[in-house]
Design a protein around this nucleic acid. Structure first.
Length: 760
DNA sequence: ATAGGGTTAG
């Protein structure tokens, strides 16, 4: 009875520790294997004997075990079921003569016991340092090495891991041991050491070749964000994956997708592409599924690489990798972003397999696909078409419109200036039972603000707050920008404070919008305060924010602060961009420091930045301010002939204004003809400048001609236009002509229209 | 794979 139950217990240990016995065999394969019963009895006896205090242990009784039958010591140790007891036993053995094998087996047992301990990591480390601090080295069995490497790896004790691995001869190394070492090395960011180990595993006829677990470790690391240590070089990544695949170790679909996603996110489309193609070549459609291709496609889409997107689609078809809805979602999204909306609609129409033609795919469009298309349509001003898709969605079972669908449409109608329709869509979504999100709130708040209805925006926000929908940083950004835009800085600050007190965590952009508003308002001290608060919140400034500040300090002529900003940019590694230089060139031009301005231009070219229309505009404007219109014209002509920069309306406006002010109206008029030839559209400012010019020269006929042209150009007059013309034409008794001019425009119902101010 | 918020010159 008793024997039988103990036998059962041993079998249980067998099952629990399958590798124990394999290492036991390796540990002592030359000793004769006793019958199971005989073995069992002796183990039990020894275990019982060892329950006595160590001083009472009888060496003579134990002796047979310690030599010819030392492999029994592993089950013995396990059944001691106590790490201190096992250590007593180890100390006992060490105090005698040569018991190498016995020690190895008991130590392995002690390690096994440690792994079963609730605080196994700590216990294992204690055993490791015990072994390390006792110079008479206890040889490690494969299992011991495995357990120790696993725990050292987790503890990131790289040096100890490597020493331990070196200690092993190649016959006791195994794939499992190498994998544990690799895991630890990667965890500590020791890529070079890890690559060495992998090389060793990949050697010809290696006894420990990479297996699936190796793949899991390596591919896992390649797919995760790197922590510390150096990162992989591009060719190392491709080389590693290639070698593993050649050994038949493939990433699963998830890991492959993860790796590709990561590479693409790091703007390494080339590496991702190679990686995918290595696996496609060696593993085929068994390994590569649509998801991995989708990751690649979206990476390519981000870089606008239509060519390779098409190539990959063709390869997928060739290899029999079936595209999913997501694949089509990516394609449609790409086409929409490229403003090729009609092609996107074509793809969409080919989706459902119902109809005729064999160029159709058997894919049911989902909500995302619908939403992508609707957004694309709205972004090119085809909201009505988007609306019809909304109706289509309502007729489906699986693709019911959701908040995103409505958000896209609401945004579309807001941008188109149809606030009424946007609000009706909002009511409609509520009626349909679709919960608005904070994005819905922000879209409407922003839309209302952008159309000068800041009051309505605030009202709507309050209404939503009443319904329990909190605003987020985006909501406050919209309101703060809007209030800054109408020069109501106090209100903007008030909303900034409300945001903080309402528990909404601000992001960098809210700070930026406030800094922007304050800078434009010339309140640079306040802006500086917000900058330091932003920094205290743990954010940094980006180029755009620096540009705003630099521009603000320039306007206040605080040159020392400008340089302070530029130095700070250098220190924090924020690279100045074309806008930074344009701001500086413009400022230098305005104070008449042409020498420094041209130095700046040289520096920007050296930095690889091409001067833009704005740069030229700044210089041209500067010469105009100096009343050196000839030089300004010279630069303008140079810009048109030598550079690839096409002139724009602003440049013409600057020159036309300057020429008129210098009495050279003829040349200004000829510049307007030049605009027509070059296809640059004049705007209200252009006409205002030239009207002033012809008025000063009393060129009445020219004025009538220009008034007709202004109507042709569909360019609406503002109050300045009306002021110039009314005063002048009234004085010369030509008010009829002015009436005709005004009648040339379609009637505007807007109360803020410039006409209403003048005509009523 | 889809939705929202802050830059320069005149």
């Amino acid at each position: 009875m008793l024997v039988q139950s103990k036998l059962l217990r041993l079998r249980r240990i067998h099952r629990l520790l399958p590798s124990t016995f394999s290492s036991l065999r390796r540990c002592h394969s030359d000793s004769p294997s006793p019958s199971r019963k005989e073995h069992e009895l002796t183990v039990t006896q020894v275990v019982e004997h060892l329950q006595n205090p160590p001083n009472d242990w009888d060496y003579d009784k134990l002796r047979p075990f310690l030599f010819e039958a030392s492999h029994h010591l592993l089950p013995v140790t396990l059944r001691l079921n106590s790490i201190p007891k096992a250590l007593d036993f180890i100390n006992y053995l060490r105090s005698r003569t040569e018991h190498h094998q016995a020690l190895s087996c008991v130590f392995e047992g002690a390690l096994e016991l440690a792994t079963q301990h609730p605080n196994s990591q700590k216990e294992l480390l204690i055993l490791h340092s015990y072994r390390k601090s006792n110079g008479d080295n206890i040889a490690l069995t494969s299992r011991s090495a495995f357990l120790l490497l696993k725990c050292l790896g987790e503890a990131q004790m790289v040096d100890d891991s490597l020493l331990l691995f070196k200690e092993l001869d190649s016959s006791s190394k195994s794939s499992g041991i190498c994998n544990e070492l690799l895991k630890g090395l990667f965890k500590s960011g020791c890529i070079d050491d890890a690559l060495h180990v992998i090389d060793e595993m990949l050697e010809r006829d290696s006894d420990f070749p990479p297996d699936d677990f190796t793949g899991e470790v390596v591919f896992g690391v390649l797919g995760k964000q790197e922590r510390h240590g150096r990162s992989f070089a591009d060719d190392e990544i491709v080389g590693l994956v290639t070698k593993l695949c050649e050994h038949g170790v493939f990433p699963d679909a998830f890991k492959l997708t993860q790796m590709i996603t990561k590479m693409c996110r790091h703007r390494k489309n080339g590496v991702a592409w190679e990686l995918l193609h290595v696996v496609m070549r060696l593993g085929g459609a068994v390994v590569v599924k649509a998801a991995s291709c989708n990751a690649m496609l979206s990476g390519l889409g981000r870089e606008r690489d239509t060519q390779r997107m098409n190539k990959l689609m063709a390869e997928m078809e060739e290899m029999g990798i079936k595209p999913s809805v997501v694949t089509f979602g990516i394609l449609v999204n790409h086409l929409c972003k490229a403003r090729r909306i009609d092609e996107a609609l074509e793809v969409f129409d080919k989706l459902r397999g119902k109809g005729e033609g064999n160029d159709r795919f058997d894919v049911e469009p989902d909500v995302v696909l619908f939403n992508t298309l609707i957004d694309g349509l709205c972004k090119v001003g085809r909201e009505e078409h988007g609306l019809s898709l909304l109706e289509k969605m309502k007729t489906t079972k699986q693709s019911r419109p959701n908040a995103i669908t409505y958000n896209c449409l609401i945004d579309g109608f807001c941008k188109a200036g149809n606030i009424g329709k946007a609000r009706r869509l909002y009511s409609q979504m509520i009626e349909e039972g679709v919960q608005p999100s904070v994005v819905t709130l922000n879209t409407l708040v922003n839309g209302l603000c952008k159309h000068g209805k800041v009051h309505d925006a605030v009202e709507f926000f309050n209404e939503m707050k009443g319904k329990g929908l909190q605003g987020n940083a985006g909501t406050y950004t919209a309101l703060i920008s809007a209030f800054c835009g109408v020069n109501n800085i106090d209100k903007a600050m008030q909303y900034f404070d409300e945001m903080l007190s309402s528990g909404c965590s601000p992001d960098a952009i809210v700070y930026y919008s406030l800094i922007n508003g304050l800078s434009i308002a010339g309140r640079m001290d306040d802006a500086s305060v917000v900058v330091s608060r932003l920094k205290r919140a743990g954010y940094g400034l980006d180029v755009r924010c620096y540009n705003v500040l630099i521009s603000g300090f320039c306007k206040k002529k605080k040159l020392e602060r400008v340089y302070e900003m530029l130095n700070e940019m250098e220190e924090t590694g924020v690279k100045s961009d074309i806008v930074t230089y344009n701001t500086l060139v413009s400022y230098l031009g305005k104070i008449g420091d042409f020498a420094t301005a041209s130095k700046m231009m040289k520096r920007m070219i050296k930095e690889g930045l091409e001067p833009s229309v704005v740069t030229y505009g700044a210089i041209i404007h500067a010469y105009c301010l100096k009343e050196n219109v000839d030089e300004a014209m010279k630069i303008f002509e140079e810009m048109c002939s030598k550079s690839k920069v096409p002139p724009n309306t602003v440049i013409y406006n600057i020159l036309i204004d300057a020429l008129c002010k210098n009495g050279n109206v003829e040349r200004a008029v000829s510049l307007m003809d030049d605009m027509k030839i070059k296809g640059v559209r004049p705007n209200t400012t252009t006409y205002n400048a030239i009207f002033k010019g012809v008025r000063d020269k009393k060129m009445l006929q020219k004025a009538f001609e220009l008034m007709d042209r202004m109507i042709e150009d569909a360019c609406s007059p503002d109050y300045i236009t009306m002021e110039i013309l009314t005063e002048w034409l009234d004085a010369v008794g030509e008010i009829e002509k002015l009436k005709c001019f005004v009648d040339g425009y379609p009637v505007s119902s807007s109360a803020s229209s410039p006409f209403s101010k003048c005509m009523l």
